[in-house]
Structure formats: C-alpha cells, structure tokens
C-alpha cells in the first residue's frame, strides 16, 4: 500500500489562502464551497502571543471513519493508497460520512447533491505531479510525497523536524502533518 502524506510548514505559512484558490480552480469547486481552508490560531497572553497559520483539508486518514460509515461503498480508498475519494455515481447523499468525519472535512456538492472533499488531486498524483495547493503555495511551505518511502522528502522532513498531526486521539490516523 502506498501511504501518501502532506507536510505543511506552519512556520513558513503566511496564511495567504493561495492553496484555497488553487484548489477551487483546479477542481472547479463551486462558489461558496471549499475543500481546503486556512486556520489562524493565536495562543498565549498579550504581549506573549504566538500565531500559527495552518492550511487544512481532509487528512486522508489511515483509518477513515467516513469510509467505514458509508453505506454504499461510495466513499472508498483510491487504488492501493490512503487517498480517500467519493464515487459520485454511488453516493446517495445520506451524509453519514459528513457526520463521521471528526475534521468536518466533507461538504455537500451542490446542486448535484453528492458529497465532495479534497482528493489530494489524485488525477495529478496519477501523473506524478503534486496536488494543486502544494504547487501553488508561494512560500513553498507545503510538501507532498510517499510516507512509506524513507527517502522521500516528506519522510526526511518528518525525521528531522518537530511536527504534529491534528487530533490523532480520534484514532483516524491523519496523514496531513504540520511542522511546528
């Protein structure tokens, strides 16, 4: 199995939102809907504040509760990878997967009514390219690659830099890593 991962350097991210725009362009996401977003989190007490910018999306979980809860098999793993996709032709729009995602990463694709989410741009990955957001980032703070290849850039970054994932305690095994 190929385990794809995204590594995002929060210390380099400036919260410009280009990843959001790139995704909307690449995937023709309708106005008002978003597959990725940027969180701006400020912690601490004035004047000792620390702000973190995080570009967030579906975590393409190793244990994807959206897939296990889907009654029709529409939510599935792409080929032999951890990329989680929705087969629109099988989706009933029952929304079980939306409720099942602890990251609230799924959305209802209007007007068709099927469920949509980040695909890690699998159509680009298939051709050896990076996802659109990774390619578009002006600060180059996003990396994409194969986690179970020890020589990949993402593996090397995670070996050498301090990092975290979001809510690993959900048990979903998220695959978007944040360098801190």
């Amino acid at each position: 199995m190929i385990n794809y991962a995204m590594v995002i350097d929060t210390t380099a991210c400036i919260g410009c939102g280009d990843c959001v725009v790139a995704c909307k362009n690449e995937n023709q996401v309708p106005a008002g809907l978003n597959r990725d977003w940027v969180v701006e989190e400020t912690r601490g007490e004035y004047p000792h504040l620390h702000t973190e910018f995080r570009s967030e999306r579906c975590n393409h979980c190793g244990h994807a509760t959206c897939v296990t809860n889907c009654p029709t098999g529409a939510s599935h793993y792409w080929k032999d990878t951890n990329i989680v996709l929705v087969a629109a032709e099988k989706c009933t729009g029952c929304k079980a997967c939306i409720a099942a995602c602890p990251y609230d990463a799924r959305l209802i694709m209007h007007p068709q009514g099927y469920i949509d989410k980040c695909t890690f741009c699998h159509h680009r990955v298939d051709q050896g390219m990076d996802p659109a957001c990774v390619s578009a980032c002006p600060t180059g703070c996003m990396y994409f690659g194969i986690l179970n290849d020890p020589d990949s850039q993402v593996s090397r970054l995670l070996r050498t830099r301090r990092h975290k994932t979001l809510l690993p305690e959900t048990g979903n095994i998220p695959n978007v890593y944040y360098l801190v």
Partner: peptide, 19 residues
C-alpha cells in the same frame, strides 16, 4: 489557552459553523 481562532475560507453550508 486559545484566545483567538479564525478560519478563513471555510463556510461550507450545513457544515459550518456547526454541523
């Protein structure tokens, strides 16, 4: 303590602000 948390560009209908 999280004092401020802003999300830019995510207002998916029926998902935000809460499901």
């Amino acid at each position: 303590m999280v004092e401020e948390l802003l999300v830019t560009a995510r207002h998916n209908p029926k998902v935000d602000p809460s499901l």
